[in-house]
Design a protein around this nucleic acid. Sequence first.
DNA 1: CGCACTCTCAACCAGATGGTTGACAAGATG
DNA 2: CATCTTGTCAACCATCTGGTTGAGAGTGCG
Lengths: 121, 121
Amino acid sequence: MSTDQLSRTFAALADPTRRDLVARLTLGDATLGELAGSYDMSLQAVSKHLTVLERAGLVTRGQAGTRRPVHLEADRLDPLTDWLEHYRRQAEQRYQRLDAVLAVLAADEAYPDTAGKEEER
Amino acid sequence: MSTDQLSRTFAALADPTRRDLVARLTLGDATLGELAGSYDMSLQAVSKHLTVLERAGLVTRGQAGTRRPVHLEADRLDPLTDWLEHYRRQAEQRYQRLDAVLAVLAADEAYPDTAGKEEER
DNA sequence: CGCACTCTCAACCAGATGGTTGACAAGATG
DNA sequence: CATCTTGTCAACCATCTGGTTGAGAGTGCG
């Protein structure tokens, strides 16, 4: 699981059941029993999935008598969005720079003088 | 790995080395050898990581003689962003609706008549 | 109290993951 | 041709994952 928070959060969402749990929880808190009813697996298995989401910080479990309402911490999705947007944007910029380089090369066509290596490392 | 594409993509990013590879590749294509130099692990291990990214569609490997430039397919990050944004937004709306309900309850205070169950399943 | 209900804990299992080493295929280069 | 470089393939291994079953802890309630 790689111990770091970002990894744990990505890993938590790398499972259809867990994504479905998150989807379900955007509609409101629910108890383990309510959640488990929707899946073709044991209650304990669903509980384990919730534990994974909990360790990723995506979910918290309350305490109300013997029932434990599960609550979604939607904010915890933000670091993922941020990471994705950051590198998405970076890649786009790189793309635009590449276009610029290609434009220059096209203009210089006959003068491969300053062309050399572009970027290397 | 759960076989579906979204799961594979989330799983691919649930590892610091792989995220670093993606970060590195936003700066431009690179060969396996160039990439592997940065990590304290065997070249084969890095190749395996690239295979994971490739199966998630995040990366493609070209063919230039014996060298195989690795290229980032940044578009493939979009489905993740979409998923995250969708549920983020949904959770926010739910929150706003909750605020509305609370406001109504506060106004009705003495009349718990129509309150009942709010949403249940 | 006694019982039912909700949930957790522990042991176990099959299969995936993340790494290793060693062998080798295919191009580039002297 | 001989050899170096780049990368892949295969076997192996330890650990993690996602599920199971069985037992039990803690609360609510007739």
